[in-house]
Design a protein around this nucleic acid. Structure first.
Lengths: 226, 226
DNA sequence: CCATCAATCAAGAGAGTTCTTGAATGAACG
DNA sequence: CGTTCATTCAAGAACTCTCTTGATTGATGG
């Protein structure tokens, strides 16, 4: 009974790999990665996610179901709404691993980064430990440039909340003399890039944080929710 | 000039996410995950990979190009052959992260594991540190059940090579009195599951190693290549 | 219990993926 | 320099994915 072992093994292996492949395919769409980034800020309703991701509600619902089908997110009925959240932290680790491979390997990322970011800011991001040091030394202001509702759901303690859309007209609220460290939803969140570019145009000393709030939380650092 | 910032940001973000999504989609096929597992054992030609994965050469070539297009593998012409290898270790980390999410989340994995493995062995796998302790204490034999060519390309020092297909007729080569720890290509490689099942049917004390050779190597542990 | 609102379902057009088959490269070697 | 062998390319049939539209479900609140 040697043959059965082989045929059995092959199909079992492919069944397993097919299950893993289903998960990978669920990640294989830009809108779904976007939805995951928004969910990484905190749980949200379908309608809220659709708005933030720029999708119709029906379309967002279908994408969320694709993510739910493979266990990346869970949805819970809460009154009239269905609130989705990321199932567990290892999902964030998976997306982070995907991002790391993408940063190094893909030409597309290099092109995008080159075209859009390199001219503006790009390289010098501040690490979490460095930021904490700068803050305790009184050298830096932390600036959260996400929309106000996301700030309200959780932010880095002591951070100043000025959504990017309002930054230009609220520049006077940013303390002068200190370096500004801007952060946003994640390592590639464009809001932080934009904020740094805008602040530098105004002659301020500004850098972006190398990760966003989900990475900060995942690193076990304190999150404030006032 | 506030509006342009937004439209710019949105498209830049989606471009980036589309690049990451391309990588995820390249992982989103059972055969390609299989090819990656074989490549994790060591570099291989298209024909060798096609044979091991049970694909036609043309089909294997197309899958490998899909992996190469997103930078997961690189191909190098070497005489008549093109030899592929995994680009860098972070690709292994990505696949490992995918597997971890799959192990916990997906029903399909639970079903497959339940159907195929749980009855046979399943739970008690030996960790790397535990194995090293058992070997220094003289309590265990390490058994490599992969095909001979993969053993030749690198294996755990001191391991005995008996491919699964030959295990039944070469049982007498396995030392008695010691516990047998079988390993294979990776955490879900069915060869090791099968080997443990077969050994236990023969009344031997057998467990599987919790990872395969790529995980062993990735952990910085020594690999022998005689 | 009927109106309302959030979310999901269903169906279909258009685009992309997968595998097969047979032809085309391109290096090696007599 | 023509043959051989490994690999890649090209085209097409079958299937899957994505987004839109309009209908349906399910909870809430007058």
């Amino acid at each position: 009974m040697v043959k059965p072992v082989w045929s059995f093994s092959l199909s079992a292996k492919l069944d397993l790999f097919a299950a893993f492949a289903d998960i990978a395919r669920a990640l294989g769409n830009a809108h779904r990665l976007d939805l995951l980034e928004h969910l990484a800020q905190g749980e949200k309703s379908v309608e809220a996610l659709a708005g933030k991701a720029g999708l119709t509600v029906a379309n967002a619902s279908q994408h969320l179901q694709a993510l739910r089908r493979v266990g990346l997110v869970v949805g819970e009925r809460r009154g009239k709404q269905v609130v989705y959240r990321i199932t567990e932290d290892d999902v964030l680790d998976l997306v982070a691993a995907l991002r790391r491979v993408g940063e190094r390997h893909t030409n597309a990322v290099k092109v995008v980064v080159g075209d859009y970011f390199q001219a503006r800011d790009s390289l010098d991001a501040v690490g979490f430990a460095a930021l904490e040091q700068m803050v305790t030394d009184g050298l830096a202001t932390i600036l959260d440039v996400r929309p106000a509702d996301e700030f309200a759901d959780g932010h880095i303690p002591g951070a100043l909340s000025i959504p990017l859309t309002e930054l230009k007209v609220r520049l006077d609220e940013v303390p002068t003399g200190l370096e500004v460290v801007a952060y946003c939803r994640g390592p590639w969140c464009v809001l932080a890039f934009e904020a740094v570019a805008l602040l530098r145009e105004q002659g301020r000393l500004a850098k972006r944080l190398e990760g966003g709030l989900p990475e900060w939380r995942r690193a076990g650092l304190p999150v404030a929710t006032p």
